[in-house]
């Protein structure tokens, strides 16, 4: 049997771990503030967090709560599959603002690098030393339903012990994420 070790949900300025609320801010608090406050609440030193775009900050936070665990687990072979609907559109627009006018044409490398949705997987892998396979998928509904083929195959066939999968979106200052960490017990082929 495959065992869900933990799941993390972020919605409406609240963070839930295994359905238990672990962090909340007033819902009126908009934009980056929630992400930054939730980060400060973790009390970890990781200055790179402030360089990330909102999608990466959100993914970082969800993964951080997913991996806060008493046992030391080797996550090198963990597989990470994430999805969303809007890709990196918010950051795409930010990059485009920098090149819209030829008289103020200053593309920023630290913005451009986040115009790929899979960068969030890279940030999570760097933080947690994960070296397994990673892929980013696009899907309209935010519950990984469209990606059932991927899950089914991964669970049954991929040579890995842990699977992190989930969906994350930052749209109009609303941040929602749902990450799950599975331990895979495979039948030997």
């Amino acid at each position: 049997m495959n065992h869900e070790i933990r799941n993390v949900k972020i919605a409406g300025n609240k963070i839930y771990v295994n359905e238990v609320e672990v962090f909340a801010l007033p819902h009126e608090m908009k934009g980056d503030a929630f992400l930054n406050e939730a980060f400060k609440n973790l009390e970890i030193s990781y200055p790179k967090f402030y360089k990330m775009d909102n999608l990466c900050k959100l993914g970082f936070l969800a993964a951080e709560h997913l991996f806060i665990t008493a046992d030391k687990v080797d996550h090198r072979n963990t597989i990470v599959f994430l999805s969303n609907k809007n890709s990196s559109l918010q950051t795409d627009r930010n990059h485009f603002e920098k090149i819209r006018q030829s008289e103020s044409y200053f593309p920023s490398p630290s913005i451009f690098v986040y115009t790929l949705p899979n960068i969030v997987i890279g940030e999570i892998c760097i933080r947690h030393k994960i070296m397994g396979e990673g892929a980013f998928f696009l899907s309209e509904n935010h519950n990984f339903e469209d990606l059932n083929d991927i899950l089914e195959y991964s669970v049954n066939h991929l040579p890995c012990k842990y699977l992190l999968y989930g969906d994350l979106e930052t749209e109009n200052s609303e941040h929602t994420a749902h990450f799950r960490l599975l331990e895979l017990k495979k039948k030997h082929h």
């Binding site: 490398p109 890279g122 760097i126 947690h128 397994g132 396979e133």
Partner: peptide, 11 residues
């Protein structure tokens, strides 16, 4: 085929 992440740097 299989993939693997460097877990080193984003760019």
């Amino acid at each position: 085929g299989y993939g693997s992440n460097d877990a080193n740097h984003i760019s």
